[in-house]
Design a binder for these strands. Structure first.
Lengths: 127, 127, 127, 127
DNA sequence: GTGGTCTAGACCACG
DNA sequence: GTGGTCTAGACCACC
């Protein structure tokens, strides 16, 4: 599997877990109707507590990204791919907006902001 | 005074307090050597706990933005304006970098990121 | 056959199976002495696990709705039609009582409850 | 306080807890802005585990009935009274509809349903 | 003191 | 085997 958890970066483990599942769905790695890894299985793989995984999965159920099939497991909902994809874009957009808003409030000029953005895009491109 | 605290936005109150002082210094509202408001005074004004203000001031002392003048109060250091200004830019830059990094990890293309940024800059310009 | 299972509505699958058999008996679709579908047959038809059907049938035997005929299968008991019919009414009655009790505890007045009931009866009548 | 938990009735304890808080808000026992009992305090009072109370409170936060005030406690939101009141009616209505639907599917006539309802209303009235 | 997160381990219903 | 619930107890940041 391709999941990774960083316990030391402040972001709650259960959120990281939920986000990775949503990313996997957005990327088509999990299709509607398909069962996602069981609580115990994912907990073993990520070396975290099953309850923490359960918390991730509960949140995903609240968001109607997965649904419980009794005694069988948790399955990706029909609407999940769409919501996961749009979620991802929406969140990214939100962060960019916040960062820019804060930069302008910090007296950076529009040109300076644009320059930082282009710098960063170029830097990432090289890696 | 022009300080504002929002207890409901996740950012620790003491950090908001410290940042507002630093912003005021960066803007030249407080000059080197000038005394900043006393713990009790600021606590009253912001309607927050004096312990919280004390925590803000302690952090600012650790960052050598203010220094204790025995028997008198806390004064802005000589180096404060410079460090406050560069701090602010550094933090803003950091946020933009993070936001862009996250956007690219979310499969937004470089063009899409650039478009969002320009959109947002234009939007702010109009207000 | 006219059986339907909904795995996603919280009601245990084995209970749905047992209830459908009892409904069929109450409706006269199965007569006393008649053999009901075999575990494997019903499991195939409903696309559920044979263990689950077996569980339904075990419950029905406990309730003396069906009885094992050695080497032959499971047959509807003589008393089954009567008990199935009265069961169904008893359960429905119970649910209505619970719903009303809860509504009153939720501060709905008796008139409001009656109004909701009549509304709902009228609505169903039209379909 | 006026909270009661029945651990043996199938309804999860954390749901009972959340519902009681919502009922209290709907009844005006808690006003917007007011702090609800702390996790530890309510856990002590109900003789249940603090984590279980925390789960109730987390659900209430998801429903925007309460909001966290850092280091201080959990406060009733401005919108809570309205949503709690309408929630209560909506849920009761839903239950009545379900019960009636099931009764009709069980071959009870409309008159029989109405009779059961009136019986039950009268019975409750006497207590 | 407050809530938030995480771990550990138990018991249950269900398939 | 599966998820769901509950308990117990730890550590953290914050006020």
């Amino acid at each position: 599997m391709f999941f990774e958890i960083d316990v030391s970066n402040g972001v709650p483990v259960y959120e990281q877990g939920a986000r990775q599942i949503k990313f996997a769905i957005a990327d088509g790695a999990f299709e509607p109707g398909q069962l996602i890894p069981s609580v115990r299985e994912l907990a073993r793989e990520l070396a975290i507590n099953p309850n923490t995984v359960a918390r991730s999965y509960r949140d995903l159920q609240d968001q109607q990204v997965i649904e419980s099939v009794r005694g069988t497991g948790l399955a990706v909902t029909k609407s999940a791919p769409t919501t996961c994809r749009s979620d991802r874009i929406r969140v990214a957009r939100e962060h960019i907006k916040n960062a820019i808003g804060q930069a302008l409030r910090s007296r950076l000029s529009q040109d300076e902001v644009l320059e930082i953005v282009q710098e960063e895009l170029k830097r990432v491109q090289q890696n």
